[in-house]
């Protein structure tokens, strides 16, 4: 157990059970810390919308790239800590990863579709 976590060891009849009865519990410090991080990132998202980031980094659509990157950071914090995937089993990682992987596949198909120039303005 890391310093950020606590373990409840169920104590029946004054004896400790084996380790597999521990439930992972997030400490209040960790939860508030993640919330603070989410707040900072929220302000960063709004900030990114009001500055022309293209002036500094000449890539088309730089603002939305930065904002989506921040959104991915925020979602990662929520998934890893609030949803406790970080302390989850390998099977949990596999399923959480499956959702992400599926979305990447769909994006890939979308880019393929768009690169064929089949999507045109109406």
């Amino acid at each position: 157990m890391s310093e950020n976590t606590e373990a409840i060891v169920h104590n029946e009849h004054g004896e400790y059970h084996e380790e597999h009865h521990e439930h992972h519990v997030n400490s209040p410090g960790l939860l508030w810390g993640i919330y603070g991080g989410l707040m900072i990132l929220l302000f960063a998202t709004v900030g990114a919308a009001f500055f022309d980031l293209h002036k500094y980094i000449p890539i088309p659509g730089m603002n939305i790239i930065v904002m989506l990157f921040i959104a991915i950071l925020k979602a990662s914090l929520v998934v890893l800590f609030f949803m406790e995937v970080k302390k989850g089993t390998r099977l949990t990682w596999l399923w959480a990863g499956a959702g992400f992987f599926w979305f990447l596949m769909m994006l890939g198909i979308m880019f393929d579709y768009m690169s064929r120039n089949w999507v045109t303005a109406i």
Binding site: T45, A49, H54, N63
Partner: peptide
């Protein structure tokens, strides 16, 4: 978290 930047925070400068 994704809806907010996608819908509400479209920077008008991208039109350039």
């Amino acid at each position: 978290i994704f809806l907010y930047p996608a819908l509400y925070l479209i920077n008008p400068d991208i039109t350039k």
